[in-house]
């Protein structure tokens, strides 16, 4: 198999859909600093360029008014055990355009892999963008992910981001997402992560509701077992009339795992409102006992509960 086939294979083994041969679906496949595949559709432009060793610059543009029907698939990965992949990403969803991007990050053999992503995302007025990032890190925990995004949202634009890592080890994740919202813009950031052994998760999500009637939801669900650690910082500020936001953080811990949730909510306009909810605890014993009374053992029961929570 060549590198491209190996990437696609690793991606499919991790549960990804086979979309790379479909001409109606835009995609890009990057392995370390190699651009292995790229396909555009009408209204969408992807430019990728290696700017130095281990670093790729990606520019994605959805042209004004275009609605991209099929989700765009981006597959990032490092196949060897060791390696660095740095992606500098510029995303521009122009006025009235729509696209959904599914990013899949596969590091199937990682013992010492670092994946760094720096993204600048701009949404033109009334643009609509969905971004889903799924990670498959293998079982060794040798992956470090550092992701930083700055999201600029013009009036009436909407973004929905979903980050998931439900199977396999996390390794180390350090996220920092920031969004600035103009009038009537709406952001939803959802995070679903399960970690174990000595996995470490650090997430900072910040949204600033600067425009009238802007909306924000930061929702994290995290399950940590063994000696894993999670820290979630959710910051939501609202400083315009009718701006409304909600922060929701649920963390389930088992064994010696540690979870911390730090919601920071700030409201500086009398007609704005932000609420927050955080719950950290072990798996609910009523749920466990119900499933055990149906014949599941404690481990199976708690897996089912946690997978359910992470789906929600």
């Amino acid at each position: 198999m060549n590198d491209y086939e190996m990437m696609v294979d690793a991606y499919k083994k991790a549960g990804g859909e086979d979309v790379f041969s479909n001409s109606d679906t835009a995609h890009m496949v990057l392995e370390q600093d190699k651009i292995l595949g790229k396909h555009e559709v009408e209204g969408l432009e992807i430019n990728a360029e290696k700017i130095k060793t281990n670093t790729i610059d990606v520019k994605l543009r959805i042209k004004k008014g275009y609605q991209i029907k099929n989700p765009v698939h981006m597959c990032f990965g490092v196949l060897p055990k060791e390696g660095l992949q740095k992606i500098l990403m510029d995303v521009n969803i122009e006025k009235d355009a729509y696209a959904k991007i599914m990013s899949d990050c596969v590091f199937p053999n990682a013992t010492e892999v670092k994946h760094v992503m720096k993204a600048n995302i701009h949404l033109g007025s009334n643009a609509h963008y969905e971004y889903e990032e799924n990670h498959f890190h293998g079982k060794t925990g040798g992956v470090e992910v550092v992701a930083k995004s700055n999201i600029e949202m013009d009036e009436g634009s909407e973004i929905l981001t979903l980050f998931t890592l439900r199977k396999g080890r996390v390794g180390k994740i350090d996220f920092d997402y920031e969004a600035d919202l103009a009038e009537n813009a709406k952001v939803e950031m959802l995070t679903r992560i399960s970690g174990y052994e000595d996995d470490q998760v650090k997430i900072r999500e910040a949204a600033r509701l600067n425009g009238r009637n802007a909306r924000g939801l930061l929702d994290s669900k995290i399950a940590m077992a063994d000696n894993a650690k999670a820290e979630v910082y959710n910051e939501l500020t609202a400083n315009a009339p009718d701006a409304k936001g909600h922060v929701d953080c649920t963390e389930i811990i088992k064994d010696n795992a540690i979870a911390r949730a730090v919601p920071i909510v700030e409201v500086s306009h009398p007609e704005a409102k932000v609420t927050h909810e955080a719950a950290i605890g072990s798996v609910d014993s009523d749920q466990l006992q119900t499933l055990m009374a149906r014949g599941l053992d404690e481990e199976e029961a708690s897996d089912l509960i946690i997978q359910g929570l992470l789906k929600g």
Binding site: D286, Q287, Q289, T290, A293, L304, G308, L309, G312
Partner: peptide, 15 residues
């Protein structure tokens, strides 16, 4: 072969 139905059934998010 024994099971129990609780007076207050548990809720299961995402199941």
């Amino acid at each position: 072969g024994i099971t129990l139905a609780w007076q207050e059934p548990a809720r299961f998010e995402g199941v």
